[in-house]
Design a protein around this nucleic acid. Sequence first.
DNA 1: AGCGATGTTCGCCG
DNA 2: TCGGCGAACATCGC
Length: 259
Amino acid sequence: MPELPEVETFKRYLDKTSLKQVIKEIRVTDNRILNTEEKRLIKALVGKRFESSIRHGKYLLVDISPQFLVMHFGMSGDLEYYNNKDEPPKFSKVIFQFNNGFNLAYISIRMFGKVSIVNSIEEFIENKKLGPDAYKMSFEEFHEAVQRRSAIAKNALLNQSFIAGVGNIYSDEILFRTKIHPKTNINSLSDNKVKELYDNIIEVLEFGIRKKGDLSSYPNEFLIPHRKKEEKCPICNSEITRIEISGRHGFFCPSCQKE
DNA sequence: AGCGATGTTCGCCG
DNA sequence: TCGGCGAACATCGC
């Protein structure tokens, strides 16, 4: 599920439900999900509170001063706040139990996510080599990132050290809206096109956040409802084409998005 | 019932 | 050194 819009939705959910409550206990159901020692996680969290959270790209960082809890949701992560009296949600991997009788479950079906503890946000971003957050970046930051790199557009958007937060589905949508072929080298784009690309990154992500990351009910003029075989481009009625790039598959309109 | 999947990482190669 | 590629990771759903 989680590209930037969904992680932003998780962030808002966590902020709404789980801030400022004292953490009583941590339950780790499967410690393969941890990127840190279980002891260290427990020591860092028990008795602390989630003070605030920030999202960078697809990562959610929670201030448990002096450290930060980091959650990444892989391809199948979720958060659920529920009453301690109830059964934990299926596939819960880490459960944060608060003093008020409610729990926050970190859920991961396929174990691709990770939970860890870091000392500072700056250090974390540095270690992971993350680029600027795709939703919060300024045009200047984006322009600079484009100039610094040579890569085909689809790979650039997917590369978290270029910009952080865009995944496979939204990258297709962004390139479709900007009418860029996925294999176009980003450093061959005109200044106008770079600006247009930037605007569309923000707009597509903004729309995704408004939709709470739910892809199931997009308007026809977006590519998202047409990301499957034998679909027609909503703009020009050409056949939507599937392409494989670096082991990921993407969809595009060969007529609107010329190489 | 095999294949694909909204992600990241690592090693190989040009 | 960088970018493209493919495999590996784990497991469920189509």
